[in-house]
Design a protein around this nucleic acid. Structure first.
Lengths: 330, 330
DNA sequence: TTGTACGCGTTATCAA
DNA sequence: TTGATAACGCGTACAA
């Protein structure tokens, strides 16, 4: 674990010269520079970033705190953030809050303690407290879910949900169930809102028994679908708020010998690759996940006053919502 | 950005006492301890982990460097590592090397520079150089792919591939194609080896035109499948070395009006949830991803001499390999 | 152009 | 039990 002192000794110069030479600073005699480089190589010298960060009062690391690492939406976001970070000379470390307020708080603590250069965060709930970050002057960008006072990258969740539901209504479905995410998670709420708005626009009333909150994961989606399907008056179509819960819903359908698109209509958020492989293919609301990450990275890199960027989700119509004309429930 | 000095001043004690009180050290007057706690709270004091790490010459962070964040196998591994880390009092930061030797090298540099407490790594290739890590005394555990001289957690890839191929042979398939990962990636090589071994065991010769190396991603799997399917004598079954490439292969089949399990047999590595949702469901070789992460975390936490742990993959037979009796190629 | 010396914020040692 | 002080490794004024 060679230090700058050992390099200096070996090169026969002062530590200051080593520092200047290795950081390509203005004025260093080429002769000395090569001697320093040689000594550093020979000793396999690696500058101690901890000491450097302390001295510089700054780090080069961005923390990306996402709410579910197993959700393909967030991993795609991560790639977008990472590509921008690389270009801006930052490293990205990814933390998985697992939709858990405590875990999230711990990682935010770590981010402050380590004095990271910036944070991109998908808040687990609206209660997420970024006070410590802002008080310590660490720039934060929220993604997917808004947070007051800071830059945010959002998706038109409500519009996407409304379009999806309107599409199901137009296809002839009469009892459309909704499986959304946890209470207090803004995207979950917005997707219900959009669903409700579409129902109202077609002159229907919102039936609360057809709306279920789950955990945005496979198992929760499955349980929610089971409850809906096993009710006395089951839905003839499902609007599902993300792709993991859609898997669960399809499992529940399969267990009952039902098929999405033939027996029950379906639209799901997120254009996961497998949605085109099931038969019939699933109609989806595609979110521009990579672009969200890119936008968040740029907002973080640019600094400046808080801005909110909203990207559009796109309804991609496939066969799972092809229509209920042949088998409507009475 | 309050420092320990300001807390000390406010509490009317020395910085040493603040440090002792806040770290719950042995002997601190309860009266002073409460005064320190109050001052820290009032100033919203957050210990600077950078300074602490420098002084302690140690950090509490583990780096987990995986080769593809969009591969569900690795995200499941990550959850296993993380759960062990939490229990051992470590934070985990995740880095995505993207199967790119340069990116991987950069993250390894960062890990050394930041003096992390440990590294869990899925090496992109056998050329991965962990010399810097070991020279600086940073413990490293390799997962999924072996690295000499350090603890490693592996899966019985060759056995799994052999079992899968043997199963396809027994089901009556005559021309079994193989889509594996990149050259020089050990799991990719082992899965071809297992495939070849099964062919030999049944008295067949390995046909190199039926083996394709791809990138372990969707697009590569699709292109590989396209070449195999568009050949003059296409295969009647496919053995695919991970779930992302399986998606690509299924896309290629669908584009040609073919269906896995009806027109072409298929077995794929990794028990992704969607494999049960396609019709017919896909036969898979399930890897214990979460357990791999757990084992790696324990090896890292325990320290000790290098050990290699090998976990078994399990063949889960579903309908996509139900047999070729009805439509063998001549 | 180079070297000396200080300070970043914390913890550990030592003496009181 | 507490406080003064040194030290972790580096970067940078400042002086030479």
């Amino acid at each position: 674990m060679a230090t700058i002192h050992e390099v200096a000794a070996r090169a026969g110069v002062s530590t200051a010269t080593v520092s200047r030479a290795l950081n390509g600073k203005s004025t260093v005699d080429p002769e000395l520079a090569t001697r320093v480089a040689a000594a550093a190589r020979e000793l396999d010298y690696r500058p101690n970033a901890v000491a450097r960060n302390l001295r510089r009062q700054a780090t080069t690391v961005w923390a990306l705190i996402i709410s579910d690492i197993e959700n393909p939406f967030f991993t795609a976001v991560a790639r977008g953030v990472e590509d921008v970070a690389q270009a801006a000379g930052h490293s990205v470390v990814l933390c998985n809050s697992d939709e858990d307020l405590d875990k999230e708080a711990r990682y935010l603590q770590v981010a402050v303690a380590e004095r990271v250069a910036g944070v991109v965060l998908s808040p687990t709930t609206v209660d997420t407290d970024i006070g410590p970050l802002v008080e310590h002057g660490i720039p934060v960008v929220a993604i997917d879910r808004p947070l007051r006072g800071i830059s945010t990258v959002l998706v038109g969740s409500r519009t996407g949900a409304r379009d999806a539901t309107t599409h199901l209504i137009a296809a002839g479905y009469r009892r459309i169930g909704c499986i959304t995410g946890p209470q207090r998670v803004s995207t979950a709420e917005q997707r219900v809102d959009g669903y409700a708005e579409a129902l109202r626009a077609s002159g229907r009333r919102l039936n609360h028994r057809l709306v279920r909150h789950a955990d945005f994961k496979v198992s929760g989606g499955r349980r929610a679908a089971e409850r809906l399907l096993d009710a006395s008056r089951p839905p003839d179509a499902l609007f599902v708020a993300n792709s993991l819960m859609a898997i669960g819903a399809l499992q529940a359908l399969a267990a009952r010998g039902l098929r999405a698109g033939r027996d029950v209509g379906m639209v799901a958020f997120d254009d996961a690759p497998w949605t085109q492989l099931v038969d019939p293919p699933i109609t989806v609301v595609a979110q521009p996940a990579y672009a969200i990450g890119e936008a968040a990275g740029r907002l973080l890199a640019d600094g400046g006053a808080p801005r909110t960027v909203t990207l559009d989700a796109e309804l991609i119509i496939r066969a799972s919502s092809r229509g209920a004309s042949g088998h409507q429930q009475s």
